[in-house]
Design a protein around this nucleic acid. Structure first.
Lengths: 339, 339
DNA sequence: CTTGCTTCCTTAAACGTTTAAGCATATTTT
DNA sequence: AAAATATGCTTAAACGTTTAAGGAAGCAAG
C-alpha cells in the first residue's frame, strides 16, 4: 500500500497536481479555484486518506517544523520535565521535537548539533556543555536560530533562558544561616559552566555577608563523570575535622541524590546533625523522612519561554537577542529546620 | 551564509553534481571516478564545509533515518530512561529519534502517530494507549514498521518487547506472603491494558495459590487521570475495617510514589504496620527511610531490543513478528521485612 | 581502419511538494 | 464591437539529492 501523493489525487480528479496542492493548502481564494472542483478534490483526498509528505514540503519550503533539543541527559528528571514542556509547547505550534543527550561532553554535543542541523531542524534549544563556546559561535555564524537554556556563556551574545542562579543560591544559603547554621558546606560540579559558578558565587557571598567561614574550604566540587566517588569524598571532608559542617547546600538534583544516599548510609540525621538544602525538586525529596528544602526552578516557564523565543527567532531572523532570567522560589521544609 | 549544496561544489570543481554525489557517498568504485578529480572534490567539500541535506536525501531515498517514539509521558522516569536507551541505541545506528507523549490518551496517541508518520519516520516504537487497537491495526495495514513496548494487545499479532508481568507480580506477591503477610492489597490502574491486567492476575493467582483472601476486595484500581485522589481512597479502604491490609503491592512507579506519599502523611510505619513492594525503580525508593523492595525492569535491554527489532523490520519488511518477553528481578529491601 | 572495450564523465529523471507565470475562455467595461 | 478584466485551470521550475543511462575519448584487438 503505497502512500498516496498529490499526483494520485490529481489523476483521480482529472486535474493537475498544482490545483490539488492549492486546494489542500487552502489557497482557493488566491488561486481562484472553482468551488465544485475544490469540493471534488477534497472529497477524493479524504477518500484516499491523503497525508501530505512532510519531507517534500520541507525540501521545498526550507522549513522542517522540527526543533532540535539538546539536553545533558534526558533521563535526568529535570531535563525530562523540561523536555516534556518543550514537547507540549512545540506541539501547540505544530512543531515536533528531535532530541539528544550530550552527557555534558563537548564532542557528543558537537556531533549532536551537526546531526540535528543536517536533519534541517529549524532551530535548536540547547543546554550547552562545558567548553562548547566554539560550537555556539559556529551556530551564530551559520545563522542557525537557537536558544540556550539552563546555562549560557556570559561573553557570547545569544538568547538564553535561565534562572537567577546567584540570587537563588544566596537566598538558600541565607535561609540556612537564618535557621542558625554556622558551618555551611556546598557541593557543586567541577565546571566552569556559568550556572554552577553563579550558584557557588551566591553561596560564597551569602557566607561573607554574614561573616561566616567556609568560602573556600567548605566549597566542594565533584566531577560529573565521577559523581558518586567525589561526592563521598566531599561529604567525608565536610563532616570530618574539629568543626564539621552543620549544613550542606547541593547545587543540583543529581548531586543531592547521591549526597543524600551517602549521608543516609552514614546514619547522619537530618536536620539535627546536618541541615540540607538543594537546587531542583524531585519526588525523592518529598518522600524523604525529612522532606528536603529546595530551590524550585519554574520548569514550565523555562520550557515555554524557550520555545517562544526560538520560534520568534525562526520567524524573524532579525529578532533581537533575549536574555530571560526567571526567579525561583525557595520551598522550605523540614530538612533545614531550626536545630 | 547559505548552506552549501552539491551544486556549489560541482561549480567550484567544474564538474556535474552527479560526480560530486558519487564521490561524497563513496561510490567511486562503482562509478569509476578518476582519482585526481575525486580528491579535488573532497578537498573542496571540506573547504566549503559541506553538510549533506538530509531532507533531500530522505525525499529521494524514501528513508529518513528517523524513528518515532511514543511513550505515555516522557517526564515519567521510567519512560525517560527508556527514551535514553533508545536514543543511544538509535544513534549507534545513525538514526535520530522524534518523540511524543500520549498521556495514555487514545486521541493524543492517534494524533502523534499521524504527525510522526507524516514526518516520514522509518518506524515507530510505541507504548500503546488503552483503546488504541484500531490505530495499531492501521499501522499494520499501512505497512509501517513498528514495535510495541511495555504493553501490547494479545489479539493483535505485532512485534513487542515486554517483561513477564504475570510472573513478576506473582513473585513479588509470593515474596510478601513468604515474609508472613496475610492481607495483601494491590493498587493498579483502572485499565484494560494488558501489562496491568497481567500484574493483577499475577497478584490474584499468588493469593489463591496460598489460600489467602483479597482477590477482589483488596485489589484497587486508580484512574490515570485522577491518580492522587483515587489512590488516597484506595489506601483508606485498604487500611480501614476490622482487618486492615498488612501489605500493599503497587503496580507502577507513579502509583508507588503517590501511595507512599500518602502513607507517609498518615504516619504509617513501613514495614512494621505495612509492607510495601512495587514495580519499577526510582531514586525515591532508595532514599526512603525503609528502602522499597521493587521489581526491576531491565530498561537497557528493553530499549536495545526495541531498536534492534524495529531496525530489522525496517530493513526487511518480510521479517517475522517477534514477541520478546524479558525477565525481571525482584530487588528485596527493607520495606517488606519480616514483621 | 573498423570494432569493441575501458575509463571517466555528463545528462536527465525522479522523489512530492509549492508557486510564479501563462493561457484560454467568459464576463464586464467602454 | 473592441478592449479590459475576471475566472479557472495548466505548465513548468524549483528545493537538494541519487542513480540509471548515455556518450566521448582512448586504446587494444582483429
Amino acid at each position: 500500500m503505497k502512500k498516496v501523493s498529490l499526483k494520485d489525487i490529481a489523476t483521480a480528479a482529472g486535474v493537475s497536481t498544482a490545483l490539488v496542492s492549492y486546494v489542500l493548502t487552502n489557497k482557493e481564494k488566491e488561486a481562484r479555484i472553482g468551488e465544485e472542483i475544490a469540493k471534488k478534490i477534497r472529497e477524493i483526498a479524504r477518500k484516499l486518506n491523503y497525508q501530505p509528505n512532510h519531507i517534500a514540503r520541507s525540501l521545498k519550503s526550507g522549513r522542517s517544523f522540527t526543533i532540535g533539543l539538546i539536553v545533558a541527559d534526558i533521563s535526568n528528571p529535570f531535563f525530562a520535565n523540561i523536555a516534556r514542556t518543550i514537547e507540549d509547547e512545540a506541539k501547540r505550534n505544530n512543531y515536533t521535537v528531535i532530541f539528544g543527550s550530550s552527557d555534558e561532553n563537548v564532542d557528543k554535543s558537537g556531533d549532536l548539533i551537526n546531526v540535528l542541523i543536517n536533519r534541517q531542524v529549524d532551530g535548536l534549544i540547547i543546554t550547552p556543555a562545558e567548553g562548547s563556546e566554539e560550537q555556539i559561535r559556529q551556530l551564530q555564524a551559520q545563522k542557525v536560530p537557537f536558544v540556550l537554556i539552563d546555562r549560557f556563556f556570559p561573553d557570547i551574545e545569544a538568547s538564553h533562558i535561565a534562572v537567577n542562579n546567584f540570587e537563588s543560591a544566596y537566598q538558600a544559603v541565607s535561609h540556612l544561616i537564618k535557621t542558625g547554621r554556622k558551618r555551611i558546606g556546598m557541593i557543586g560540579y567541577k565546571t566552569t559552566l556559568h550556572h554552577i559558578s553563579e550558584r557557588k558565587r551566591g553561596y560564597k557571598e551569602a557566607l561573607q555577608d554574614h561573616q561566616l567561614p567556609g568560602g573556600t574550604t567548605l566549597l566542594k566540587s565533584a566531577r560529573y563523570s565521577h559523581l558518586k566517588e567525589d561526592i563521598k569524598v566531599s561529604i567525608d571532608q565536610l563532616l570530618s575535622g574539629r568543626q564539621p559542617a552543620d549544613a550542606v547546600f547541593f547545587a543540583t538534583n543529581s548531586i543531592a541524590m547521591e549526597g543524600l544516599k551517602y549521608i543516609n548510609s552514614l546514619g547522619i540525621r537530618i536536620p539535627d546533625q546536618l541541615a540540607v538544602i538543594t537546587f531542583d525538586e524531585g519526588e525523592a525529596l518529598d518522600l524523604f523522612y525529612s522532606p528536603v528544602t529546595f530551590v524550585r526552578q519554574p520548569i514550565l516557564e523555562i520550557g515555554r519561554e524557550a520555545v517562544r523565543v526560538l520560534l520568534e527567532e525562526i520567524k524573524d531572523s532579525k529578532k533581537e537577542i533575549e536574555h530571560i532570567c526567571i526567579d525561583t522560589t525557595l520551598v522550605v521544609r523540614k530538612s533545614c529546620g531550626q536545630r
